[in-house]
């Protein structure tokens, strides 16, 4: 049965989430503890993005609840960092890499002050953590997709979050950037941050995440990768998108 809620950074308690008044994903139940990485896995349209937006307080929880750092998602916003998919952003936007990372400090800087030495230092350290300190002055849009994704992670790191939520950070990302992303995320979990990553990459979920939440409009399993990423559970969750490979496994087509 589910672990107790008390030591969790993020707790899903029989939570159902609606997007645009239609149920997107139902009955999610499980926890993310400090220092833990949990993968959200499921086919396209499974409700991964909606669940992520619910953790950020952008989409309503219509049944059950989601508790983030002991509070409601909306109340916890300032301590939760969100890493969107880099390719949703305008590559022509006139903004430098350093400016993007500094955005992570905005809520700490306040309305009327300008960024102080501590803010700049935090932004520089965050950019170094993803291995892009040499690109600080370049325009954001000039970087490769993987590098842009790393800059967005650096922005999240700069805000010194207690919890981190990444939406499909590895889509179309080269191996170098993927390794840089993972190592920076591990640095954060070593400092006690709770991390949720939505991903299509089951191998990655298996090798890097402490636990996996398998979704398709509802939760199919939530637990250690070895228990969740089994052919039989994947077959159930992916339905017609799972192609059988004899007795030895299956291919997921979406």
């Amino acid at each position: 049965m589910p672990p107790p809620v008390s030591d969790a950074a993020i707790a899903f308690i029989h939570a159902s989430v609606a997007y645009d008044r239609f149920p997107a994903v139902e009955q999610v139940h499980g926890t993310v503890r400090p220092g833990e990485i949990v993968a959200l896995v499921g086919p396209n349209g499974a409700g991964k993005s909606s669940l992520i937006k619910a953790v950020l307080g952008l989409v309503p929880v219509v049944e059950g609840s989601i508790v983030v750092l002991g509070r409601t998602p909306a109340q916890a916003r300032r301590q939760v960092a969100y890493v969107p998919q880099a390719d949703t952003l305008d590559p022509d936007f006139p903004i430098s890499v350093a400016q993007v990372v500094l955005m992570g400090r905005y809520r700490r800087i306040g309305w009327l002050r300008s960024p102080g030495r501590a803010d700049r230092a935090a932004a520089e350290a965050a950019l170094a953590a993803v291995g892009l300190e040499h690109r600080a002055r370049d325009r954001f849009g000039l970087l490769s997709g993987g590098q842009r994704q790393r800059v967005l992670l650096a922005r999240a790191i700069a805000s010194e979050p207690a919890a981190l939520v990444l939406d499909e950070p590895f889509n179309g990302v080269d191996a170098v950037s993927q390794e840089a992303l993972l190592s920076a995320v591990r640095d954060l979990t070593a400092r006690g941050a709770a991390v949720i990553i939505s991903t299509h990459d089951l191998t990655l979920a298996q090798s890097t995440c402490d636990r996996v939440c398998l979704l398709n409009r509802r939760q199919f399993a939530f637990g250690p990768p070895a228990d969740v990423l089994t052919p039989s559970l994947l077959r159930q969750a992916y339905g017609g998108a799972a192609l059988e490979l004899g007795d030895h496994g299956l291919i997921l087509t979406r």
Binding site: K53, L56, G57, L58, R77, R78, V80, Y82, P84, T88, L89, D90, F93, I95, Q99, V100, M103, Y106, R107, L152, R155, S159
Partner: peptide
């Protein structure tokens, strides 16, 4: 600036 560059992130922040 944050809202112009990345609306969803700004909202989440």
């Amino acid at each position: 600036l944050a809202g112009a560059f990345d609306r969803e992130w700004a909202r989440a922040s």
